[in-house]
């Protein structure tokens, strides 16, 4: 985290420094890098986020300034809008991939290596496959393991298709949001003269299209499909790991879960017993109270006699 933050700070500082030398007409920036080590916790994360977001904003702004200065005040900004759309497409794709990312173990398996890479033949994917296929024959698992691998591939294919279907919805949302955005600019009255306004208009345009799109049955199905595909893959890998751990005689997640279930059951039984005991104690106290009252009444009667 601290490294990332430091890196971002340095990027930001370099960027601003560059701007101060290169920006035509002088730079609007006069910025001093905060000491990232002086902040911690959520504030540090926030600084990181701010820096990242500001970089994007400044980059976008500088491009517009450049375009305007090259082509004059009444410039046609279609090139910029195209650029913005590409930028948006990239951001959306990153967001989709990070939201529906492959389970960690599988993500590691699919990290690519170049042919010059020392890890080419010993990368996590090869290593994982080797360890799977090296299961002792005498356990009779070779065939079932092959079947498992096939199931894994099927799940991966389903994940890939689900992701494609889901991404298609976002491409459509982006396109219609951009159309909506351009239409809104055309009809803006009074006209838009600031980047902040432009951003707000974009957000409005996007959210309008987005809320309509996600309310459709198609989107619902695509969302359900990708959610379930990611979970099935994750579960598959967990089950594979459980089998391996079991073969090695190491307690696995499934066994731990069974213990949790038993513990839960026992906790419930214990609570139920405690409740019964408490009710019995209350009854006992009531009986004692009644006995005392009865004794006192009998005593009174005896005295009266």
């Amino acid at each position: 985290m601290a490294d990332d933050l430091l890196k971002l700070m340095q990027q930001w500082a370099t960027y601003l420094d560059k701007q101060s030398h290169e920006a035509p007409g002088g730079t609007p920036f006069n910025w001093q890098s905060p000491d990232p080590t002086s902040v911690s916790g959520p504030q540090a994360e926030l600084i990181s986020l701010l820096t990242q977001q500001s970089l994007e904003f400044a980059r976008f702004a500088e491009q517009i300034i450049e375009l305007i200065e090259q082509q004059g005040r009444q410039t046609e900004l279609s090139a910029l809008i195209n650029h913005f759309q590409d930028h948006l497409r990239r951001l959306t794709q990153e967001w989709i991939l990070s939201r529906w990312q492959l389970p960690e173990q599988l993500g590691a398996l699919f990290r690519t290596h170049s042919f010059q890479d020392d890890l080419l033949l010993d990368n996590p994917f090869i290593h994982g496959l080797k360890s799977l296929l090296n299961t002792p024959d005498q356990l009779g698992l070779q065939h079932s393991l092959q079947q498992q691998l096939k199931s894994g591939v099927d799940l991966l294919i389903e994940y890939e298709q689900a992701l494609r279907q889901y991404s298609a919805h976002y491409s459509e949302i982006n396109s219609s949001a951009t159309r909506n955005f351009l239409d809104s600019i055309e009809t803006a009255d009074p006209s838009i003269n600031g980047l902040g306004q432009l951003h707000d208009l974009w957000v409005e345009s996007y959210e309008e299209c987005y809320s309509k799109a996600i309310a459709t049955l198609d989107y619902r199905k695509a969302h359900g499909r990708i959610s379930n595909a990611v979970m099935r893959l994750r579960l598959f890998l967990q089950q594979l790991r459980n089998t391996q751990l079991q073969q090695l005689g190491i307690p696995n997640e499934a066994q731990l879960s069974q213990i949790h279930q038993q513990l839960h059951q026992q906790r419930r039984e214990l609570k139920s017993l405690k409740r019964e005991l408490s009710e019995l104690t209350e009854l006992k106290e009531e009986i004692e109270e009644l006995k005392r009252t009865l004794g006192e009444k009998n005593g009174d009667k005896g005295n009266n006699r």
Binding site: A61, I68, E69, R73, I185, E186, A188, S191, G194
Partner: peptide, 11 residues
């Protein structure tokens, strides 16, 4: 674009 009047100075 009719509704857009951005200037380098304003930005």
């Amino acid at each position: 674009m009719k509704g857009l009047s951005l200037s380098a100075e304003t930005i």
